[in-house]
């Protein structure tokens, strides 16, 4: 579904990604874990076309076939089915919950089935229906996260990128969000999850990568990485 080869990205004078390669197969949930500043968000922003790669390729099985995303405009990438739910939620504060969701479906031509998609999102997150008319900015952090995920789902992702969905949320809400990710996974949504909360991410992931200083230093199944001594020490806070 997604195959990243030798991706280099610079921001300002700094080379943030120093040639990373990773892949996500259809139906899989992949996790990208790493410390602050390792380049996780840079990776996702490059995939979405908001940052430009200096070199390397991003091959994606999109709506119009297998394409290289590195030269594509951000709106085309969404159209191809690679949709990101960004770090810090980034909902539209001044727009109503309803309008936020409709912006998720901005590129969809099938106006008719959009309504039933919104109902599906409402079924997943009933609070979004209750607060349909409320301004996005008045929602609590957890509700905003649900709105951000709902909005991304309405773009009908073939591959959903989730950037730090647990960031800044109460433990109970993190639990809830991961339940939803689990549900999406069971429904066959392909997911690339970026997390600092490595324990939960590795638990849910079929495949995982560790990103350190702009390089992939470890990869394997979620289970393998969770059992890896270095990962346990560095990311799971377990002394070996």
């Amino acid at each position: 579904m997604l195959e990243v080869r030798d991706l280099h990205v610079t921001r300002g004078a700094t080379e943030v990604l120093k040639g990373i390669s990773l892949e996500v197969l259809e139906g899989e949930t992949a996790a990208l874990i790493g410390a602050n500043g390792a380049g996780k968000s840079t990776t996702l922003l490059t995939l979405s076309g908001l940052l430009r790669a200096k070199s390397g390729t991003v091959r994606f099985e999109g709506a119009s076939g297998s394409i290289d995303l590195t030269k594509l405009a951000a709106e085309r990438i969404v159209g191809e089915g690679l949709v990101q739910c960004p770090e810090g939620r980034q909902i539209f504060h001044s727009l109503s919950v309803e309008e936020n969701l409709s912006m998720g479906g901005y590129l969809r031509r099938d106006r008719a089935s959009l309504g039933s998609s919104i109902e599906e999102v409402h079924a997943l997150f009933p609070i979004l229906k209750e607060r349909a008319k409320a301004a996005g900015g008045t929602l609590s952090g957890g509700e905003q996260m649900m709105l951000a995920i709902g909005r991304a789902l309405l773009a009908r992702p073939r591959l959903l990128l989730l950037d730090e969905p647990s960031l800044g949320l109460a433990p109970q809400m993190i639990e809830r969000i991961f339940d939803v990710i689990e549900t999406l996974k069971k429904r066959g949504t392909t997911i690339l999850l970026v997390e600092q909360n490595a324990a939960m991410a590795l638990d849910i992931a079929d495949r995982a990568y560790v990103l350190e200083n702009g390089r992939i230093t470890l990869s394997g199944s979620g289970r393998e990485l969770a059992d890896n001594d270095r990962v346990r020490q560095a990311y799971l806070g377990i002394a070996s």
Partner: peptide, 15 residues
């Protein structure tokens, strides 16, 4: 309005 509110999020929604 979405673009005025959050340009980055607007781009990520395909606007």
């Amino acid at each position: 309005r979405a673009t005025a509110d959050n340009l980055m999020a607007a781009r990520l929604m395909g606007i």
